[in-house]
């Protein structure tokens, strides 16, 4: 589905995004080669600053047409309700006139769909509530629901459970894995990454250091990765 060959990425500190310009930026990904096939469930792990998000956003840019992104920069519209924020995932499926009317007066069918999705994601809040009134964990689930509501075959997530408790995280992960053919996800919980995904990729300081199938994960190597980085 995607093959990356000798990728080098730079991060522009002043602009705050990935760039090709070399002068004002620092390199975050070094000569990285990687192939991800359709149907795979891939977790990306690594200590902070390893370049995980940069790599993920690069992959998203290549696969934009078929992918739903659940970014750390949530991009929720504070002034809109939970319902409208989640509905934003479905904008591409409808005519603009439908979307405009829905902004003023939600459609029954969409309301039912969104309500069902919220229930599944354990988000028991009135749909009319504005998202700026929600807690960090609730906002994260609204972001997640919006990505799910895009109903794509590929899910790309950047630590979508960082503000949730581990048990809820594994329940929600199960839903995501079940609903998408392919999943590429940056995980901060490496235990969960190793147990729930087919394939685990580890980055360290912009280099690909581990790429293994679930059966052959070298536990010690991963632990060591986090320890050395913590010291450095």
């Amino acid at each position: 589905m995607i093959t990356i060959d000798n990728l080098n990425l730079h991060y522009d500190k002043t602009a705050g995004y990935n760039t090709d310009k070399k002068e004002t930026s620092t390199q975050v990904i070094f000569d990285l080669s990687l192939t991800i096939n359709e149907g795979e469930k891939v977790a990306i792990i690594g200590p902070s600053g390893a370049g995980k998000s940069s790599l993920l956003h690069h992959i998203y840019k290549k696969l934009q047409a078929s992918a739903a992104l659940c970014s750390q920069r949530q991009g929720l519209v504070d002034n809109l309700s939970i319902y409208h924020n989640i509905f934003m995932g479905a904008l591409a499926r409808h005519h603009w006139l439908f979307n405009l009317v829905n902004l003023i007066r939600p459609f029954e069918q969409e309301l039912t769909n969104v309500a069902a999705l919220c229930q599944q994601l354990e988000l028991e809040q009135p749909l009319i509530k504005k998202v700026d009134k929600l807690s960090g964990g609730q906002r994260q689930r609204v972001t997640l629901a919006r990505a799910l509501y895009q109903q794509k075959s590929l899910f790309i997530g950047d630590e979508p459970f960082s503000a949730l408790d581990p048990l809820m995280a594994s329940r929600l992960l199960e839903i995501i894995l079940k609903r998408h053919k392919t999943v590429i996800m940056v995980m901060h919980d490496r235990e969960l990454a190793m147990s729930a995904f087919d394939r685990v990729i580890a980055l360290d300081k912009g280099h690909l250091v581990i790429d293994s199938q679930q059966q052959s994960i070298d536990q010690q190597k991963i632990t060591a990765l986090y320890q050395t980085s913590a010291v450095a």
Binding site: Q74, G75, V77, L91, A92, H95, W96
Partner: peptide, 13 residues
């Protein structure tokens, strides 16, 4: 918010 909206949605939406 614009970044997270499906880029294939029409510009008005």
């Amino acid at each position: 918010p614009l970044e997270s909206i499906d880029s294939r949605a029409d510009i008005i939406s």
